[in-house]
Structure formats: C-alpha cells, structure tokens
Write a protein that binds this DNA or RNA. Structure first.
Lengths: 121, 121
DNA sequence: CAGCATCCTGTCCGATACTG
DNA sequence: CAGTATCGGACAGGATGCTG
C-alpha cells in the first residue's frame, strides 16, 4: 500500500507489510467503527453493547472486541464478582484512531449527493 | 453508523443507510486504495495497472475498477482503435476522497509502534 | 453475565481458460 | 489489448445451543 510505486510494481510483501493495510481493513469491517463510536461515549459491558446494536450477533461482538483489543484500540477490564462484569473502554490510541475515521465519515456525508448521483447510472 | 445512539439502539437500517458505511467498506477492500493511489499519478490503461500491482488478478482488477467507477471515484475512457485502449483516471471526487484516506494512512504510520506493541501480546 | 463451540450461507478473491 | 466465464478455497458473519 505504498504511496510510491508506479513504474515499480507494488509487491505482495509491500502490501501485506504496510502498516496502513491492516488499519484500512479494520476500518472496513462491519462493526468495528460502530463499537468504537459507542465506546467513545463511555465504558460499557458486553451485554450492554450487544443490546445497543441491533443486528449484531454475540459471536461477531466477541470477535470484534477481541480484534480491537489486540490492536490496542480498546481495553478489557474484568471485575471479579458474581455475576461477572467486564467493561470495555476506548484507549487513548482508540480515541486518536477515531479522528481520521471521523474525517472519512464527514467526507462521506459531505459528498453524499455526488456518490448517489454516480451510483444512479 | 450513526455517531449518536447509545441508549437508543443502533438499527440495521441506520447502519445500512448511513452514507459512511459504504465508504468505509470501500476503504477496507483489498485493492481500491492501491489502485486509486496509482491513478493519482496519472491515467493508466488496464494492462498497465495489471502489471503495476503484483498479486492483483485481472479478475479483481476488473471488479475493483467497476466498483470505483460506480462510486464516481474514477473515470473510464474507451478509445476506439485497434488494439483497443481504455484509460482509467481519477475524478475530482476520487482525488478529494484520497485526502481523508491519506489521513488514515498517516495515522497508521504515526502509530505503527503502538500497534505493534499492542499486537505483541 | 459473558462468553465459546458448532453449523451454515454468502461473499471475497485467486487460478485458469476463453473472447471481440 | 481489455476484458468475461467458471471453478474452488478461504473467510466473514448470522443462528443456535451450551458453559463457568
């Protein structure tokens, strides 16, 4: 995903190793940005998140939370009580990540009519 | 993909109809940003693009170009000669799209060490 | 409550072969 | 040159049921 390379072919290795590639993938998957946006407003438990997003299965919620945690974008805190309670919250890295993501969202809203016009052909 | 909604559940309709959703999807797919970045440096023919990106199949090149064209991000110009020549070029919309995308790429590079640190656990 | 295991469908995407 | 057609593997993602 080098921004250079036009005469020089973009290689598979360049594409896979580019730090931007995995970030762009995360932006593209179905629930990550939704969950991050919800967590931006405060920490939440698992079932709270589950109920907050219609159409999100527990399976994908778990997988997405794990992925976001592995990327360091959210934190996972287990409170050892009965019943168990786990809180998810944005990290500073996650908060900073949302800035360029929001820029993209604003671009989409700003050019919504252009996109619709192009699509209606 | 509303940025509101926490007590109010995020609905499927909201997610599907949000103009940002399709844009984020496009950012996330494997070749769109690569192709747009190459076209940023000038118009190119089909096989030129094909040879410029190692690992990109003609099949996916075709599909990606079609998708980008439907979104109005690139233009497709057929020159009726023998052999046929088709030029792909960025539109103004595509050029403006690359700005927030680049912001995301810069974020990734800037926080590369944070991401790697989080991942190594 | 906060998950994991299993199954199943749809889509992504590469490989290969063929066409105007 | 600029594609299309078809196959098949891999994976995203929903539904359901079970567990500590």
């Amino acid at each position: 995903m080098s921004t250079a390379a036009i005469t020089v072919p973009v290689t598979v290795a360049e594409h896979e190793n580019c730090p931007a590639t995995s970030v762009l993938r995360r932006v593209g998957d179905k629930w990550s940005v939704v969950i991050l946006s919800i967590l931006e407003r405060g920490a939440h438990g698992f079932n709270e998140l589950d109920r907050s997003v219609e159409g999100l299965s527990r399976r994908m919620l778990t997988r997405t939370l794990r992925a976001l945690e592995e990327d360091g974008l959210i934190s996972r805190t287990v409170h050892p009580r009965v019943p168990p309670r786990v809180d998810y919250a944005l990290t500073d890295l996650g908060r900073s990540f949302l800035e360029p993501v929001r820029a993209l969202g604003l671009w989409a809203v700003a050019h919504q009519s252009d996109l619709e016009a192009a699509h209606s052909r």
